[in-house]
Write a protein that binds this DNA or RNA. Sequence first.
DNA 1: AACTTTTGGTTAAACGTTTAACTAAAACTA
DNA 2: TAGTTTTAGTTAAACGTTTAACCAAAAGTT
Lengths: 362, 362
Amino acid sequence: MIQLFNTVYLLKRLSKYIKKINIKKKTTIKDIANVLNISAAAVSKALNDDSRISKKTKKAVKQVAKNLNYQPNHLASALRKGKSNLVGVIVPRTNSNFFSSVIQNIEQVLNKEGYNIIITQSNESYKKECDNIDTLLFTQVDGIIASMANETTNLEYYEKVKAKGIPLILFDRGENDLNVDYIGINDYDSSHVIVEHLVNQGRKRIAHIGGYKRTRIFNNRIRGYIDALKKHNLPLDNELLIESSLTTEDGKEKMAQLLKLKNRPDAVYVASDYAALGALQVLNEHQIKIPEDIALVGFGDEPFTAMVTPTISSINQHSAEIGKQAALTFLSYTKKKTIEQTLNKIILDAELIVRESSNIIN
Amino acid sequence: MIQLFNTVYLLKRLSKYIKKINIKKKTTIKDIANVLNISAAAVSKALNDDSRISKKTKKAVKQVAKNLNYQPNHLASALRKGKSNLVGVIVPRTNSNFFSSVIQNIEQVLNKEGYNIIITQSNESYKKECDNIDTLLFTQVDGIIASMANETTNLEYYEKVKAKGIPLILFDRGENDLNVDYIGINDYDSSHVIVEHLVNQGRKRIAHIGGYKRTRIFNNRIRGYIDALKKHNLPLDNELLIESSLTTEDGKEKMAQLLKLKNRPDAVYVASDYAALGALQVLNEHQIKIPEDIALVGFGDEPFTAMVTPTISSINQHSAEIGKQAALTFLSYTKKKTIEQTLNKIILDAELIVRESSNIIN
DNA sequence: AACTTTTGGTTAAACGTTTAACTAAAACTA
DNA sequence: TAGTTTTAGTTAAACGTTTAACCAAAAGTT
C-alpha cells in the first residue's frame, strides 16, 4: 500500500486499466479513481485543488488523468453546480466590424475567468431575437449580453430573462425601460461633436439621415442634431431630417432624395457608416465634389470608411472598450449571491475621426 | 381521480403548487409531475411525445408546463443522452464577410435540426486554435466545423478530435492529411479562370501575390497560376510570384515591391481581397491607372471590392453553399451509429466577378 | 496518557433528465 | 372464460460531477 503511488507500480496498474477500459470511449473521474484505488470524490477534489487532498495524491491524480487522456465532462459539473460557465451574446449581425470587435473583447475578458461565449445573430429580426433568447436559456447560460435588433420594441422576452434571475447586459442598442446594465457611447454628444465640426468647416445647411426614432440611440442622435443646430443658430429645416433603415441601399435612396431638393444641403451627417457609403456612391455618381460641394460624415468608424474614395469621416464607437466593460459588468454579478439589476449606464465619450469627406479647410 | 385533469380542478392544484414552489427558482419535470400526480418519467415522455402516453395526459402536461413556465434543463438531458446538441465552429475571424456568411448558413441548417452552434475565433493563431478546440471538447460539442488558422501546420490537436470520435468537418482552409470531410472551392481552377481572363484582356506580364505555400489552398492557387501561365505560353518570372501573409498591410508592401521592378507587371492577381485592397491603395497613391496600366484581381468577393474606387474584380467563394454543405455533412454523421471518417471532399466551382479593376476591353 | 486538532480522505446524496424493464388494468381473442 | 395483447403508465437506475457530512489515523497538546 505504501508503494501505491510508486511510478513503476502505477504504470502497471495503469496499463492494465487501459486495456480494460479500451472499449468504452471516454475517461471519467471514476476511471482515475479505480487506477489509484481512491474514491471518485477524492479525484474530483484533487483535480480542483481542494485543500483536503495531499500533494502526493494530487500529483498522482493529475498524472493518471493525463495518461488516460481525461477530459472533464462539463455537462455533469455544470448540472451539479447549477452553472454552465457559458455566456450568451446576441448581436444583430457579426459581419460588421463594430460587433465583431465587441465580441472579440467580451471573449477575451470572459475566457480568462473560465467562461465561454455562445454567439447568436438576430439579423435585425425580432422573431429571430426571441428564438435566440430561448436557445440561450435552453443552453442554461449564466448570463446574456445583447444588442437589440432594430425591430425590437416589445420587451417581454427580455423581461423573461430578467425574471429568471439571469444577468442581462445591453450594449449599443439598449432600452432604459428594462432597467438593466447598459454600455454605450454618448450618442447625443456625438451629434454635437459632428455638427460643431461641420460648422467649423463653414457649413450652413446640415442634413441628417438618421435611424428610426423608436430606437433609443438613433433618437438620441436626432435630438443631439437638433439641439446642436439650435446651439449654433442654424434653423432646423424639416426636409433635411430624414428617418432611414440605415442600410447601404437606403442610404442611396435618402441621399438621392436630398439631392432633389431645390435648396440642397452643404453637409450630410449619416447615422451609420453603411448608409453613408450608399450616400457616397450617389454623390460620386452625380459627380458632386466631396467635401467641397457636400461634406459627409458617417458613424461607426467601420474599416471601409478609410478604404473608399474619398475616405469618410466617422465616429469611433470604442467597440473594444464596450466589449470589455460589458464582460466586466457580467463578471461583477458572478461574485454576488443575489442578482438585483437596476438601470446602470456606462457611457463612453465618442471620438470623431476626420477624414477627406469633411475636411475642407486645411 | 377521474376528474383529475378537469380544468377547474387542475387550476386549483396548480395555484396551490405555485405558492409552494415560489421560493425555488426553476421549474423541473418533477414539479409538473407533482401537480398532476403522475411520475416524472411520464412527464418526460409526454413532453417528448412518446407513444406510450395518452393524448389526454400529454395535453395536461403541456398545459401545466406552460403555466409553470417550464424550461427544460438542457444540461441534464444532454448528460443523460450523452449528446449536447451543440456544434463547435472555429474560424480565423468572424469579421470577414466570407466567414460570417458561412457561419450564418451553418447556423440556419443546424438550427432546424435542433442543434445550436458555438462560434470561436482563432485570430489566425495556432495557440488560440488549440485553446478553442479544448474549449469545444470541454463543452461536449457533438461535432466541430473548422477552417484552420494560417499558422497551423501541426495537426495533433485535430487528431485528438478525431480520436474522440467527434465528427470533424473542415472548410476553406483544410488539410488532406487529416482524412476528414472537406468543403471548399476549386482553388487551382480559380487561378486558371483568373489568368485566362487577364490574358483575354491582353495582359502579358501577370504577377501573383499569393499566400503561404504551406497552406494548401494557397499552394493550389499558386500551382494553378503557374500552370495557367504555361498553358498560355507565358514565361514564369520568379520576381512576379510573391508569398505574402495577405493582410491589407502586407498587400501594400508586396505591391510596392512589384512597382520597384525594372520590368513591371501589367496585371496582378492577389490571393485575398484584403491584400488586394492594400495593393489598390498603393497603385492609387502612385497614380497608376487601373486597369489600363496595371489590372488587378482579388479573391473572395468581399463586399468592399464593390465599394472602393475602382471596384475590384474578384472570385466568389460561394460562402453560403459552403456553410450549408458543411452543416449537412455534419448532420449525415448524426444519423450513423459508428463514426468512421475518411477524406471526403466537396469541391465547388468558383466564379469570377469582373469589375472595373480588370475590365479593359469593353 | 488522555484529550483535541489536523490531515486526508470516504460515503452518499444530489443536480434534472432519460430510458430499460416492469406492471396493472383494459381491451381484445378464440 | 381464460388467455393474450395493448395501453398507459411506474420504478429505478444511469449520465459524470460536486459537496455536505462523516470518520479514522496521525499529530499535537496538556
